[in-house]
Amino acid sequence: MEISSFVLFWAAIFTSNILLTNFLGMCSYLSVSKEIESSFGLGVAVAFVLTITSGLNWIVYHLILVPLGLVYLQFIVFIIVIAAFVQLLELLVERYTPALYYTLGIFLPLITVNCAIFGVSLFMVIRDYSFVQSMAFGAGSGIGWLLAILMLAGIRAKLKERLVPIGLQGAGISLIITGIMALAFIGFSGIVNVQ
């Protein structure tokens, strides 16, 4: 695939946003978005882990799994790489920057089961990205996810004092807001097209 990494980065944020067009990372998106501050913390953590793990998984896939003919093990290996990296990051952050640990640390375990991280690694394999493309796609997807959860958290904060029909409270209204956000993001789709 011959798309420049720069284009891929912007496309991952706007035209094929990981959450709004590919529906990845919905679980933590719906449950954490009640507060802006924790949404920001989780979003930053996701963006960071996504960027690094998509690079790591590219290395593991192309330098270990493909030469050994173990491609069918990719799901297990990707999950282990992600879990191990998150665990390592948690240890390092706790050891060297305790202040950061108190703000971001609680979100790290949530990240292992965030489907956005795993999904980006799978997209990278299916679309046959190069190493630099994978990193750019990972970083763009992470920032796109951060953007989406921040927008939802902002809107939900405004919505707190409003009357919402009882059956729609919580997940229902969040899904409708997300749908409207997704509609708005379709407006970007003419700029670049990345499948």
């Binding site: 029909p165 059956g167 729609l168 749908g179 409207i180 997704a182």
Partner: peptide, 19 residues
């Protein structure tokens, strides 16, 4: 066919069932 409809339909489904 596009993404937003999925969000809307799931929200409607949750709304109906909750009611």
């Amino acid at each position: 066919v596009m993404a937003p409809s999925a969000f809307f339909i799931l929200a409607m489904l949750i709304w109906i069932i909750n009611n």
